[in-house]
Amino acid sequence: MPDQSQQHRHILTFNFRQGRNKPRHDEAMERLWPRYGFQWEPADGRIDFPKLFGRTAPVVLEIGSGNGEAAAAMSDADRERDLLAVEVYPQGIADLMARADELGVDNLRIYEGDALPLLWKGIEPGTLDEIRVYFPDPWHKVRHHKRRIVQRDHVATMRGLLREGGVLHCATDIADYAEQMLEVLSADEGLENTADGFAPRPDHRPVTKFERRGHRAGREIFDLIFRKH
């Protein structure tokens, strides 16, 4: 885990682009944030998941839930586990909450902010059942690759938060990032690949609008599923 000084000045792994809320976003935030929203500061310490979700159940963390299409569908299909989704864009959070509300999903909470401080200070090691990193910001330029979230130190932190047998599932439609992911994940001695190289897309991960757009553009989709041993 990085020391305190590194945590205060860490490099952001997302490129924040402030969009404009539409009326439906404002309405969803006002109506649904009290139900699904979760506020946390580093000074708050470790999250009490049973208190947060109102029950004791396995917890999944999704880093970068986007517009929430996958997060809402997977929460709906997997109601025996709880999902903490992390997203920085208010519009995406509003869309996720609206989707969850429409499905009647209650096993979902959403944190608005940077995932890294949450990983370092907000989650007790060995408590997560699964971590999902779907289609993270690719940071195409070589000089920006250090901003990619799937790199050695961040992966080591994520692995430490998983229970024994817990899963780290990444997906991307950027070929060179997929190769980097495979190299980094394979090099972590605490993780084992569940496939021979890239994994077939599991049926439980929905094909989202974003993914369909990638297919239309001719990009291959890569899944990587590693297990903590």
Rank of each mutant, 00 (worst) to 15 (best):
P2S: 13
Q4P: 00
Q7H: 12
H8C: 03
L12Y: 09
F14P: 04
N15A: 15
N15G: 11
Q18M: 11
Q18E: 14
G19I: 08
G19A: 12
G19L: 09
R20V: 09
H25I: 10
D26W: 00
E27P: 02
A28C: 01
A28Q: 09
R31D: 04
W33Q: 08
P34F: 08
Q39C: 07
E41Q: 14
P42Q: 11
A43V: 09
G45V: 05
P50R: 13
L52A: 02
G54Q: 14
G54K: 10
R55P: 04
A57L: 06
V59N: 06
V59Y: 01
L61M: 01
E62S: 12
I63R: 08
G66K: 05
G66H: 05
E69Q: 13
E69L: 02
A72R: 04
S75V: 00
S75N: 00
R79F: 02
R79M: 00
R79K: 10
R79I: 03
E80L: 05
D82T: 07
L84W: 08
A85G: 09
A85N: 01
V86S: 10
E87H: 10
Y89P: 00
I93F: 07
A94D: 11
A98Y: 02
A98K: 08
A98T: 12
R99H: 11
A100I: 01
D101C: 00
L103C: 03
N107S: 01
L108T: 01
Y111H: 14
Y111S: 01
E112T: 02
D114K: 13
D114M: 12
A115G: 05
L118G: 02
L118D: 03
L119Y: 09
K121D: 15
K121V: 05
I123M: 05
E124C: 09
P125M: 09
P125N: 07
L128C: 10
D129T: 05
Y134D: 00
F135T: 06
K141S: 03
R143Q: 12
H145Q: 14
R147I: 11
V150P: 03
Q151Y: 03
Q151H: 12
H154D: 00
V155G: 04
V155K: 02
T157L: 07
M158Y: 10
L161N: 06
L161K: 15
R163C: 11
E164F: 03
G165D: 13
G165K: 06
G165P: 02
G166Y: 06
L168W: 02
H169C: 07
H169L: 12
D173C: 04
D173G: 08
A175G: 11
Y177D: 05
A178Y: 07
Q180P: 03
L182S: 09
E183K: 11
V184A: 01
A187Q: 12
G190A: 10
L191F: 10
L191H: 07
E192C: 13
E192I: 15
E192R: 15
D196I: 04
G197P: 03
G197I: 13
G197L: 12
F198G: 06
A199M: 01
R201C: 02
R201G: 02
P202C: 09
F210P: 02
F210H: 06
R213L: 01
R213F: 01
H215C: 04
R216G: 04
G218T: 14
G218P: 05
R219V: 08
E220G: 00
D223C: 13
D223P: 14
L224V: 08
I225S: 06
R227Q: 15
K228P: 03
